[in-house]
Design a protein around this nucleic acid. Structure first.
Lengths: 155, 155
DNA sequence: TGGTCATATTTCAAGCATAAAATTTCGTGC
DNA sequence: GCACGAAATTTTATGCTTGAAATATGACCA
């Protein structure tokens, strides 16, 4: 009797599909945990965190369109998130000097402080959620992921 | 002059965070491409595809609650997606024999045919999006991802 | 000057996602 | 039989997300 979980001739497309499903399971799981902790412990969301993170790298602010390019989300999307951050006193809009069409979004001091606190927790959470990997394994994994990324064509 | 992109003493938490950001970039990129192709080429969405996929594995159907457990999404969420699949003639609800609270969702013949066609394209797309990796690299990556998955604790 | 096209943003409609509330039915203990 | 808590589902309110339409301004050219 022969035990064989997969045929020796299995096409590579099948192993790539299996890899994709595992990757998705890992990232969705981590993301779900991050969302839940942001919500339960800090009463905020991942999209808000992402916007705070982007703005914290640009102390002078970012045009709405640059923000949407940076985060790879639609213009209408950032409009809504920045609206809510503004209501919460974490961000504000400034008229762009020299172009009356454009708005520059930036953090308030409260927003900067809120992000700094969140970022510390976020890093610790990610560290915790990837404890299964040693430093070497993390580096190997990073290298392979980078290789996969390099070959990505969009259309 | 010394070139040093990262300090030798960099804590492992930083390399794990970098890994997380790369992982996220890879999976979000692939997912975005899959969503766009489902939409542009087949006029459907990833959540619908996921439900079709789950139901295709259970020809006798799945209770709504089992479907939401299987897909790891909320009950209210599956209600809406199955509603839309039903309107499109791809799924239907059957009363559960012996429990008048429960509904069993299952595919129509049209739904089964639609899924089979989508699944072929989906596998080819994933294969295409991961062409950067050889069979060996894909296996190494899968093994490391599985290791990371095994160490996941939820809370 | 005025016309025209491009750019920056917001608004809108639809779908996806969640948690929490509401509804219906089940099962059990009395 | 019936009271009562548990389970299955739907409904509701809110937020995220997109693509497309609408609005306003800029840039350029005739």
């Amino acid at each position: 009797m022969t035990l064989q979980t997969k045929p020796a001739t299995e096409p590579i497309s099948k192993s790539r599909l299996r890899l994709w499903l595992k990757l998705l399971k890992l990232t969705s799981g981590i993301e779900a945990t991050l969302r839940r902790r942001l919500r339960d412990n800090h009463d905020t969301t991942l999209p808000r965190f992402d916007v705070l993170s982007a703005l914290s790298r640009y102390p002078d602010g970012l045009k709405m369109s640059d923000l949407s390019t940076y985060l790879k989300v639609s213009n209408g999307n950032v409009t809504g998130i920045v609206d809510r951050l503004t209501e919460e006193g974490l961000a504000l809009r400034v008229a762009s000097p020299g172009d009356r069409r454009a708005q520059v979004a930036r953090l308030t001091p409260n927003g900067k402080a809120a992000f700094d606190a969140l970022a510390r927790h976020h890093e610790a959470w990610v560290d915790d959620l990837l404890t299964g990997l040693s430093a070497d394994e993390a580096k190997t994994l990073t290298r392979l992921v980078e290789k996969a990324l390099a070959a990505q064509e969009q259309p």
